[in-house]
Every structure is written in structure tokens, then in C-alpha cells.
Simulated scan of single mutants.
Amino acid sequence: MKCPYCGSDNNRVIDSRPADDNTSIRRRRHCDDCNKRFTTYEKVETIPLIVIKKDRGREQYDRTKIEKGILAACYKRPVSAMQITKMINEIERDIFSREEKEIESSLIGEIVMDKLRNVDQVAYVRFASVYREFKDANTFMNELKKMINEK
């Protein structure tokens, strides 16, 4: 690890602790050449994941797409940033624990909806209306009835 201040690789770890909901390690380091301290983060390297879209096209997995969808669904809802981060981390854990190189976008959508349903029902319906492409009010009502009957 090179020091960001002087470029030396003569440094040592002075503190390590879990970060990001135990998905990475935060390390405080001390450069022995310039005596400055800096922080690094260590994450497990995952296999590249390819998402199979509805149109059968393929693209590399992008966490920010899930973040944007969840943030839009939770807009002006009583869902904290910590809850959203935790939910996204759980979704990623579910996706990557399958140890597959490709995953259908529909499966990712179902996982997201399942997590949202448990956090905020309005956010769930918002996400479902876009994800499932609700065409009219009847489709919307049918989804609401299903949700009410599950209680």
C-alpha cells in the first residue's frame, strides 16, 4: 500500500475494524517515511456479475441502479439512510451468495420488492408500480389487495 502523501510503501497498519455493516475492513495506517496517517478500506473481491435484462441484453451488475430505485421508492417516506444502506447490503448479499455469473434482472427486482415490503409498504407499492409496469388503476388496486390479504 502506497502512502497517498509521499508515495512510499513503507507503512504499517495501526488499527483495523469492520466497516459498512461488516462487509469491509477499515484500516488506519501510518507512513514511516513522512509520519502521516491515512485510511484504507478492504473489500472482498467478487466475481463479475452479469445482469440479464428483460430484452435479453446483458450488462455488468451496477449497485447504483438498485440504490436509485430504492431511493426513489422511499422518497418522502419515514425510511432512514441507515435502513436503506442496510437493505441494499442485504440485497447484494442475497444476489452474490448465489455464486452465479449471471442473474435475471427480474430476480433482482423480486428481491428488492421483498426487502421493501418488509421496510415500508408505500415504498414497496411505488417500486412495484414502476418495476411491474402497472398499466392502470386496476393493476395498482390488485397489488394493494394482495398486500392487504397477506396481513
Rank of each mutant, 00 (worst) to 15 (best):
K2R: 09
Y5T: 08
S16H: 07
P18W: 03
A19V: 11
I25V: 13
R27I: 06
H30S: 07
D32M: 09
C34E: 01
N35S: 09
K36M: 04
F38G: 01
T40N: 04
T40E: 04
Y41T: 01
T46C: 00
L49W: 03
I50H: 10
V51T: 08
G57T: 15
R58C: 05
Q60L: 12
D62N: 15
T64E: 10
K68R: 15
K68Y: 09
I70F: 01
I70Y: 00
L71Q: 05
A72V: 01
A72E: 15
Y75V: 00
Y75G: 00
K76V: 03
R77W: 03
P78T: 04
A81Y: 09
M82P: 00
I84L: 08
M87I: 07
E90Q: 13
E90T: 10
I91Q: 04
E92N: 14
R93N: 08
R93T: 10
D94Y: 12
R98W: 00
E99N: 15
E100H: 10
K101R: 08
K101V: 09
E102S: 07
I103E: 04
S106D: 10
S106I: 12
G109M: 11
V112P: 07
V112W: 04
D114C: 07
R117Q: 07
V119Y: 04
V119R: 04
Q121V: 10
V122G: 04
V122S: 07
A123M: 00
F127I: 02
R132C: 01
K135R: 10
F140I: 06
K146F: 02
M147D: 08
K151S: 10
